[in-house]
Design a binder for these strands. Structure first.
Lengths: 290, 290
DNA sequence: ACAAAAGTGTTGGGAGTACACCCATGT
DNA sequence: ACATGGGTGTACTCCCAACACTTTTGT
């Protein structure tokens, strides 16, 4: 079996009290062997721990999430968030990074370990943890959801299988139809993934307000207009191009000129920028109220 | 944020593939019994899942956290955050609520289920999840930390034992000595609890900026001055009493007059208020920069 | 010439800061 | 009378929303 009773406990192991905090033991019986390895699977409720990923990008002026087709029951054939088990010797963030690379081939900027080249690669951060006892009908699974923000990518690759993964507009996945209140998305996501996705989207929407994270949706070099269209897609609003321009170029450290210009959007050539070093925006970008 | 909406999953279980998402199985061998119970402990890495609590309050003009003395090794005799195992049939939020009641006797306002009587009881929300493989030397433990904000309480009761639990100023626990940079707190917290506490404190500090959560630190009825002293203690700054008064009384839904007055702070009698229905403050309270 | 997108200037209002000043109590 | 904290008024500043206007390309 792959789990080689890892966790080498330094020194003392004579006391295998499971609850670290107050010396309470989960198992009611008090008859377990004190000479056993550093954990006793029967002494605590066994949980499986997974990471699920909310990977967001902006494609064709819409906020999209990466979903994969489930090949197994339950929810066979339904769309779900990508994810997988946390390995025995692996930190939660490492598991999320591994899954993200497996799923998208992205290189990852960890939130806590800023990469040398700002503006490229994806942003990854922990989102929240979901542990309802009934969220997976087969067993007790606690899922540590992570949020990833990625620039527009060519095409998802999920184990080489093309039609088992796709970028889907979150509006379509969540049924947040804006105008007329639709009851349900055409095909709801598996498990509690709709809720996880909604939480991730809300986090992204609020976080680009006071941080420079919106640049994670952009290619390494981008124009102010492209950045504005990111904000518009994520928030689902339209912004005044003039005020937006003044705001982002006037915030020190947000954008640094990359030198060239481009006309890929048509019209007058636009300056190219890279993401600057600043992570926190002060004052923040304000989402229009109405 | 993490609402406990139980998504009811249809109950088929004939396939015991462990990785829900992509049909990957953790166990390399492919010889497990398809007729077995809904989980196979050897097919996924066994984790213990706990909840740890960052319980904050304001006492004598200082932000304090609840810590308990560890009676077992490792870290025997050191202070730690209260916490405990998540039970087999228990949601994460329920486990945190249970631990909080056991530890403090508080009744709990769940963030997502606003209680009928605003302003009383504690606030509880999920904070983050910590799963470094080495965070507990005995075994693999993933801890879902929660943040609780409580009004000043008489005295902590930890299993009846008085001197095994206390409210400690976070400044003392974290060694954030303001003026002169001290190296380490006198006695660092057990495990990675210093980091968890720091994250919880930072969350509280930023959250009272844009939400009405500061009232969770106050008794059911309180004065504007008392609320101001909460902000001052949590942020470690001093605020202009005049502008603060105008700001909080002018934000609709933040405070509602409770009718009476009090002179418990000396000076001119102050109006008593209750927390209003508003949860989000717009515009937010601003933390002074310097 | 015209459309389209990039940028700049200007103006009015809302909210924050700083601080002078008044109010109601206890001692 | 005086100290203490509660509460109001006012002037100044900064930022933002709105919008008129100019610039530079493609067709």
């Amino acid at each position: 079996m792959p789990l080689d009773t890892a966790r080498e406990a330094p020194g003392e192991r004579e006391e295998v009290v499971v609850d670290a905090r107050e010396g309470r033991v989960y198992r009611q019986e008090d008859d377990y062997d004190h000479g056993m390895p550093p954990y006793d699977p029967s002494a605590f409720p066994p949980f499986a721990v997974t990471v699920d990923l909310v990977v967001l990008t902006v494609r064709r002026h819409a906020l999209c999430a990466l979903v994969v087709r489930r090949g197994e029951s339950p929810f066979k054939g339904r769309w779900a968030l990508p994810g997988g088990f946390v390995r025995d010797d692996e930190d939660l963030g490492a598991a999320a990074r591994r899954e993200l690379v497996e799923e998208t081939g992205l290189c990852v900027h960890d939130q806590d370990a800023p990469a040398p080249m700002p503006g490229n690669g994806a942003h990854l951060e922990q989102l929240a943890t979901y542990g309802d006892p009934k969220r997976d009908p087969r067993m007790r699974v606690v899922s540590v959801a992570h949020l990833a923000l990625a620039p527009d990518l060519p095409a998802p690759r999920a184990g080489g299988d093309a039609n088992s993964a796709r970028w889907a507009p979150v509006e379509e996945l969540l049924g947040e139809d804006g105008s007329v209140e639709r009851e349900e998305p055409a095909e709801p996501l598996a498990f509690d993934h709709a809720r996880i996705l909604a939480d991730g989207v809300e986090r992204a929407r609020s976080k680009i307000e006071y941080s420079s994270l919106a640049t994670a949706f952009c290619p390494p070099e981008f124009t102010v207009g492209e950045l504005r269209r990111v904000y518009e897609a994520v928030w689902g609003v339209s912004l005044d191009p003039r005020n937006f321009h003044r705001k982002v170029t006037g915030t020190p450290g947000f954008l640094v000129p990359a030198g060239g210009t481009t006309t890929r959007q048509g019209g007058r050539p636009a300056q190219l920028f890279r993401a600057g070093g600043a992570t926190l925006l002060n004052p923040p970008m304000l989402r229009p109220e109405v």
